[in-house]
Amino acid sequence: MLSSRYLAIFFCCTLFWLLPFTGYADDLATEVIDAEITLQKDHYVLAADIAYQLSKKATIALQSGVPLYWSLQIKLLQQHPYLWDKTVLKTDIHYRLQYQALLNVYRLQNLSSGETYNFSTLYAALDLMSEIQDFPLIEKSKISPEEDYLCALKVKFDRGLLPVPLRSIAYIDKQWYLSSDWTLWPLKK
């Protein structure tokens, strides 16, 4: 009896300790303000408006030369009433943002397309990332008109690509919880 009581106390303490972590995501997280997938000719294309946020620590890190990575995760799920949803499409857009001290510019690279942009301000760089226009996703022919589809979009701040010394801290510091939640909406056909 005594040991089970101690076990319960231990679990309560652990839960209490973990409780602050659950709220971290909301404070500094990136937010998907608007997203929609529309049909343009034979392709479904994505348009999204994303509000990126950088914590104080992330900003300092960036200005200290630490490159930051984001990936825009896009999924198209075919819905099944009784089974798991089938992933029809899964694609990522990777961004790398780094401060160039010599030229005092922020260099933004779209790692998926290979494009590079230089911005004199951080906001200009984030502004470029925040607007997605006409990003082709899937051909119309691959979408069945009878089925229901769910679109999912998430901006993931890639802590795994931070420098090693920062990595372990990034997993426990709310300043580095910069990813957004999944945004889900049905596909309009």
């Binding site: 630490v66 010599l102 372990s168």
Partner: peptide, 26 residues
């Protein structure tokens, strides 16, 4: 030359920023 200077500067600044994290990690 400029690139070399920038690389050294950035690396140093990055390391300086990561000093605390480095200590924690080690």
């Amino acid at each position: 030359l400029a690139d070399s200077v920038e690389f050294a500067f950035v690396r140093y600044k990055e390391m300086k920023f990561l000093r605390h994290s480095l200590k924690i990690t080690f």
